[in-house]
Write a protein that binds this DNA or RNA. Structure first.
Lengths: 337, 337
DNA sequence: CGGTTTTATTAAACCGGTTTAATGATAAAG
DNA sequence: CTTTATCATTAAACCGGTTTAATAAAACCG
């Protein structure tokens, strides 16, 4: 690989001149420009992004830290979210460094990555990385809330308590008091939040939660989210008397729908289903179409990217944003009489 | 941000020593190690990945070039593929630099990216980037075939002609000679290949293609793949006499299924559907479950990553691999009598 | 105890760019 | 025809690490 020095020598100019020809930051006579460009082509010279980054302290790359399990595929939520980040970054000339690597225990290995800022998905409780990025002065935006709360860090989040509440309220208004909630995995904070919101809805309506049953997704028991929806319904219908189901994702709802078909349950006449949707297209593609709460994962991603890019420009910015979920009425729910 | 120099000075050692403490490439006395580490902590020193990369000419990052349209979401195929690449890279300690940026016209802007190798999705005809990576001596693996063929470049590909042939043969064996092929967008090479394979199947069976109708996806006419499947079926059923449909993706098939429900067509009794599936899970989640050809997008991605990592170790390697598609019989097809 | 080997440490060169301050040439102004 | 301002160009310092060759100190050996 030819370097800027090779080009400079062969073109009989200084490396600073070659640099200027390529960066166009300083005027260079057309004569010299042409000569340098010709030599560069002959030597197959391409500027080195790394060396450049080192000098100008800028990479035009955004880091995206996203914990992904070794065995399982990304969830629809994650896919949509990445989508949003990429789309926004791409629009503004940034590339995305996807980092799904598990963290090394040895603090010696923490390094300043080749990025201008970082978006971090699902920070853990007391996440040490948050402080580390502060020390590094790397702009950081979380997707999800810092725990414990820290108002000096930027984050974008759903209000999952509100989401749970919203769904609960909707179902209660429609006369459903016996509900099966197919919740996310119990180690996820979103699962706890949504559950709390749902309970709050029951409380504020003065309805007992005695007919509210909450189940949790478990990688051990369930092959995939659809399977979770399928077996949960198959195993519980008949034993329990619920009139409505809340499914953690579209895929879970899909599995539940499959089960209802096999059991001969008519949706929504005999059973109402509402999905927490991470894939707005899929929710419209089922039959019946799913009444769902749009989590707007893609919006979450693009808003995080927008905020980060703002913070890269001006590190001083501190801002949080809660993305509201929208309840979209389609065909899978009905008033219980 | 503290640098290695700051640490060296304050600890009263040379920068080479600090470097050795962090890289552990050279033995350093425990006494010095501790002192350096203490100072590093006090100054919040973190090694700079960029500077390191420049010196050792290695980034542990793999570039993934993937053209994504500004307005539309990633297809299931792309998602699965990225998934495969990420999973494999992550397993081996590499991160992935996602590059969806459109190429700049000005050749001045081509640079050696901060990556150890590149995976490029869907190279264009006469793609100038292929030669450029050769000149840069950057390991490159294509997903899709180089056009014109170049046996010196590494690539991983489906055999789309064979896929078309396979599906055609299966349907013909089952007595279907009137077929509607909901093909991909006509500007995609895969669309042409699959169509060719399908025609070849007809030919070799000695069946006239007069009742074979091929449609193409068009971003202008169709909101999304599902919508494409839906309207295509709604508009054509009755006018045409096909007994089987080939859907370009699971989502297209999903739309078609939706239409059949509304039209009261019973699958597979009145109409057979086979999907070219990029989402193996989804194909099992529809009702009826889709008989489909698994494109194995994730496998494509992980194989590309494997090959690239091999090539990064040994640049001399030249290897191509064709991933076979598997026809999986489920519930959406039946013998036509 | 002197000579050889081993070990930890360092100074300096290097990776491939950018940028500042200085310089010489050219154009504009008086 | 000076004097001054403008312009293209350059040498050298710099970004923050790694690595090589040299060196001083400690360990080994007969």
């Amino acid at each position: 690989m030819a370097t800027i020095n090779d080009v400079a020598k062969m073109a009989g100019v200084s490396k600073g001149t070659v640099s200027s020809v390529f960066s166009k930051k300083r005027p260079i006579s057309t004569e010299v420009t042409e000569r340098v460009l010709a030599v560069a082509k002959e030597l197959s010279y391409f500027p080195n992004h790394i060396a450049r980054s080192l000098a100008i302290k800028k990479t035009m790359i955004v880091g995206l830290k996203i914990p992904i399990s070794r065995e399982h595929a990304m969830s629809g939520f994650e896919v949509q979210l990445i989508n949003g980040v990429i789309r926004e970054c791409s629009k503004r000339g940034y590339r995305v460094l996807l980092d799904t690597l598990p963290e090394h225990d040895d603090p010696i290995h923490f390094a300043v990555d080749p990025v201008d800022g970082v978006i971090m998905l699902n920070p853990r409780t007391q996440d040490p990385r948050i402080d580390r990025y502060k020390l590094m002065q790397t702009p950081l935006v979380l997707i999800g809330r810092p725990d414990p709360m820290d108002e000096t860090v930027c984050y974008i989040d759903n209000d999952n308590v509100k989401i749970g509440n919203q769904v609960g309220q909707y179902l209660l208004e429609n006369g459903h008091t016996s509900i099966l909630f197919l919740n996310a995995s119990s180690d996820m904070t979103v699962a706890a939040d949504r559950k709390r919101g749902l309970y709050e809805a029951f409380e504020s309506s003065g309805v007992s939660t005695e007919h509210l049953k909450v189940m949790h997704y478990s990688r051990k028991q369930h092959r995939n989210p659809t399977h979770y929806g399928y077996v949960s319904l198959k195993n519980s219908y008949g034993n329990h008397d619920y009139t409505a189901i809340i499914a953690d994702t579209d895929r879970v709802a899909l599995g539940a729908l499959q089960a209802t078909r096999e059991l001969g349950i008519v949706i929504p006449e005999q059973l109402s289903i509402v999905a927490l949707s991470d894939d707005p297209v899929l929710a419209q593609e089922t039959s019946p179409k799913l009444t769902s709460v749009e989590l707007s994962a893609e919006l979450l991603g693009s808003e995080a990217a927008k905020l980060l890019l703002k913070k890269i420009k001006n590190i001083g910015i501190v801002q949080q944003k809660v993305i509201d979920a929208k309840l979209i009425l389609r065909e899978s729910c009905k008033m219980y009489v």
